Amino acid sequence: MADFFRPEAKATIWRFRDVWGALLVLALGVWWSITGLGFVTWLGYIIAAIGVMLLVAGIQRGRFRQGSDGPGIVQITERRLAYFGPLDGGVMDINDMSRLSFDPTGHPAPYWVLTGPEARDIAIPTTATGAEALFDVFSALPDLKTEKLLGVLSDPPAQRVVIWQRPVHLLH
């Protein structure tokens, strides 16, 4: 029974695991809104709306995940990001990040390039272990366009592209 699914199908199902949970919540909400009476009907509508929001977030997270078999490990602890790679790495406070770029020319996988103080870069492969947690970090950046972030993964550009940059405040 373990060989019932092809490895590629298993990987896709696992990549979009948040979607499956959201579909269950949505199905429960729709079921309660159709079959329930009184308060349960309204509760079903609320649960169905929550299911739709979880579904949208799950699809975004699934599109962001690229695998976890790449080089290095990403850890995020109390708004401090650490990447431990085989050749390099670094630690950066998320609040100190000034620019987020995507480099599709990286080897063996494309890289997220995070620029911090003194223009110091940390290049993190999209397939590094724990890199899926970067979605939450990137989503918290002010004025980041999520569709632009996900678009570079589905349709990679030919060269490095800046996805987000901290606004510069001029004195006058």
Rank of each mutant, 00 (worst) to 15 (best):
Y111T: 07
R15Y: 11
G89W: 02
R65H: 07
A22V: 09
I163V: 12
R160D: 05
G29H: 12
P125E: 10
E118W: 03
A109D: 14
L87C: 00
R61A: 15
F64C: 11
V52P: 03
F135Q: 09
I13C: 02
I34N: 01
P108H: 00
V113L: 07
A2K: 02
W20M: 01
G51Y: 10
R166T: 00
M97F: 04
F102H: 04
A2T: 10
A128W: 06
T12D: 12
L171V: 10
H169T: 13
A57R: 13
D18V: 02
G116V: 11
H172Y: 05
Q159E: 14
F64I: 06
G51F: 06
E118A: 08
A140M: 07
A158Y: 11
V25Q: 01
W164V: 10
P142L: 06
M92K: 04
D121P: 13
H172M: 08
T129H: 10
T77F: 05
P157N: 03
I47E: 09
A140S: 15
G29S: 07
S68I: 08
L153H: 05
L87Q: 12
S139D: 15
R80W: 11
A57W: 15
V52Q: 01
L150R: 07
Q60W: 14
A109P: 08
G116R: 03
F135T: 09
P104L: 10
V52N: 02
L149P: 06
P142R: 13
R80C: 10
H107K: 11
D155N: 09
D18Y: 13
R80V: 15
W31A: 10
P142I: 14
P108M: 03
L87E: 12
I34A: 14
G72W: 06
L144P: 13
G89M: 06
F138S: 01
D96G: 05
G116W: 06
I59H: 11
S154E: 14
L87A: 06
S68R: 09
P156A: 11
R6Q: 08
F138I: 09
H169P: 00
I59V: 15
F84V: 04
T105W: 05
H169D: 05
A48N: 07
L170V: 09
V74D: 04
T146G: 05
W164E: 05
P142M: 11
D155F: 07
D69C: 01
K145L: 14
L24K: 00
A27M: 06
H172A: 14
G151F: 01
G44M: 04
R65P: 00
T126Q: 15
P110F: 06
V137T: 12
G58E: 14
L153N: 08
R99M: 04
T115L: 05
M53P: 02
P86Y: 04
F39H: 04
H107E: 05
G36H: 10
L100C: 07
D143S: 13
Q165P: 02
A133L: 13
H169L: 12
S33K: 01
A2V: 02
T41R: 15
K145C: 04
Y83V: 10
P167V: 12
G116H: 11
